[in-house]
């Protein structure tokens, strides 16, 4: 175990529920890479989109509380979910800029806001902290011949100055990570478009329309599969894919992997520990044809 590299892991609600395979594969991947991951004790929901939509003060306070809780664990905060990542970064950014909001939040959590800790998405930990070379050297089953459409969605990079993960309109970080595992990435049009996110509960028709455009673009680019780093993007593209195919009379059959699932497979974790069985669009035919499993 690399003692110098340990993270305070904030999984977020989805990873303990509908995105269990993202959690499982993240833990397995970090284990294989020899990097420490310690879950933040008693973390709360970050409030996600619904909280900031109607009550920004609540959203900022919930995130500030989580940042305070994360201080109990050594190391930077590691976040898997794009929405949690966005909210935690937004909170740091807003409270550093706005003295009034900071005072209100400190009153709400009855503690000083901890804003200097580093909050990192798994992608930047993999690409920058661990590094592409170390990642590539851990790969035992290279993903040769697999054509991957890397899907970023909204919150990993937007808006400027907040997540600071990569270029806001034309990022390459996910492609570089996937290529380090031996896969091929395709250029395509919809990697930064919105999938409809949490309208999946209130207005699924919106999701069907927006996610169809994304799947259609990925398919036309010649991709074998889509890779995501957000539980909501995954839910919309994987869980609703069959329904979308029915509505638009299309046949996509595109497996949608979490980035950590694909990397865990490449590092030899096997199907079970990578949580492949939880995917709705069957990924096994693809991985068998390419001789990876």
């Amino acid at each position: 175990m690399d003692k110098t590299l340990n993270y305070a892991y904030y999984p977020g609600c989805s990873l303990h529920a509908s995105a269990g395979e993202y959690d499982l594969s993240t833990r397995e991947l970090f284990n294989l890479l020899g990097v420490g991951l310690t879950e933040v004790p008693d973390w709360f929901c970050c409030g996600a989109t619904p909280a900031h939509n109607v009550d920004e003060l609540l959203s900022l306070s919930l995130c500030a509380k989580n940042l305070e809780l994360a201080e109990q664990v050594d190391g930077d905060v590691a976040v898997a979910c794009a929405a949690c990542f966005s909210r935690l970064k937004f909170t740091q950014h807003t409270l550093l800029e706005d003295e009034t909001k900071r005072r209100q939040v400190e009153k709400a959590i009855d503690a000083p806001a901890r804003l200097d800790g580093k909050v990192k998405h798994l992608l930047e930990i993999l690409a920058r902290d661990i590094g592409l070379e170390r990642l590539a050297s851990a790969v035992s089953k290279p993903l040769s011949g697999v054509k991957v459409a890397c899907y970023y969605g909204c919150l990993l990079t937007r808006p400027p100055d907040v997540p600071n993960l990569d270029c806001v309109e034309a990022p390459t970080i996910m492609e570089r990570v996937v290529e380090a595992a031996g896969a091929e990435t395709v250029p395509w049009s919809h990697r930064m478009e919105c999938c409809g996110a949490n309208f999946t509960l209130s207005r699924p028709g919106v999701v069907i329309q927006l996610s169809n455009a994304i799947l259609d673009s990925a398919k036309s680019s010649g991709a074998d599969c889509v890779v995501v780093a957000c539980p909501l993007c995954h839910g919309n593209l994987d869980m609703r894919q069959k329904e979308i195919e029915g509505v638009y009379n299309a046949e996509y059959g595109l497996p949608v992997f979490y980035i950590t699932q694909l990397l865990a497979v490449a590092c030899g974790a096997g199907a079970e520990k990578s949580g492949l069985g939880a995917l709705m669009v069957d990924p096994f035919p693809l991985l068998k044809v390419k001789n990876i499993l």
Partner: peptide, 10 residues
């Protein structure tokens, strides 16, 4: 109906 995708702000 705003999805908070942040494209406008960007």
């Amino acid at each position: 109906y705003c999805a908070s995708c942040e494209t406008c702000s960007t």
